[in-house]
Design a protein around this nucleic acid. Structure first.
Lengths: 130, 130
DNA sequence: CAGAAAAGATTACACATGTAATCTTAAAAA
DNA sequence: TTTTTAAGATTACATGTGTAATCTTTTCTG
């Protein structure tokens, strides 16, 4: 049973760790703890546990450098977030993305920048699908 | 400690139950089991457990009708999905909705209809924010 | 009326998750 | 070299979750 295919289901806390690892890697656990602590006051032991779980799940790996480990993600952020988004939208909005965006609009959570980006995406889409 | 404010954190399985309840309510547990079984082969006892948990969490309530209960949601689907979407997008995309949509586009998961709906949303948004 | 059936309540139980504390071991410091 | 540290490994432990089975109670059914 190799680790070729990440057997994920990354928990929320695990995702936070992965998230800062994606920001810059390879990184030691201390690096990661430090970055996380900009935002959340997580105990160093907690972060280590989460790193180990990510390793066991096959989404993070490491190389030994003396006594520390240098961690790195085995999956790309883009790939992961794309899949999560798809499955979220399937679950909650029966796969349609527009209702999700509608909720944002309705909640005044859309900025001019968001709208500009959406327009650019649409223009691009239309060029590819005329 | 009243049940005024739903103390949610609705699990995935619980959400499935709530989802079919939203489709049509009030509904008995048998109604719900039947509707769920269109899609997933859940044991009737399982569904009852999930209903009880939803009641305990304050997101579903019921009225007694003879020996059965008539369940109904205490929160609106729109409200719930809006909040879930916000928190999902915050967690995964740092709050920006466009990258989520970009992932869909990039994955060829956008239909003409989605695009039409997005365009309508944008037009609407622009009318409100000129 | 007695027994069966069915609704809901209670109990079960393994695995996941958040959140560490303790144990081991190796490297750094004195 | 002995001692202290600090990294990672192992263990812990309460609560949540998926997935029911069993218990209680109340209505039908015969």
């Amino acid at each position: 049973m190799s680790n070729d295919n990440p057997k994920a289901d990354i928990s929320n806390a695990e995702f936070e760790v992965l998230d800062v690892l994606w920001d810059d890697y390879p990184a030691t656990s201390s690096d990661i703890v430090e970055r996380l602590n900009q935002k959340k006051p997580w105990h160093d032991k907690t972060v280590k546990t989460l790193l180990s779980r990510l390793v066991k799940k096959g989404v993070v790996d490491f190389d030994k450098a003396q006594r520390q480990y240098l961690y790195r993600p085995l999956i790309a952020r883009e790939d992961y977030t794309k899949k999560e988004a798809s499955s979220f939208v399937s679950r909650i909005f029966k796969g349609k993305v527009a209702p999700l965006v509608a909720g944002f609009a309705n909640q005044n959570s859309l900025s001019q920048q968001d709208v500009d980006e959406l327009k650019a995406l649409i223009k691009q889409w239309e060029q590819n699908n005329d």
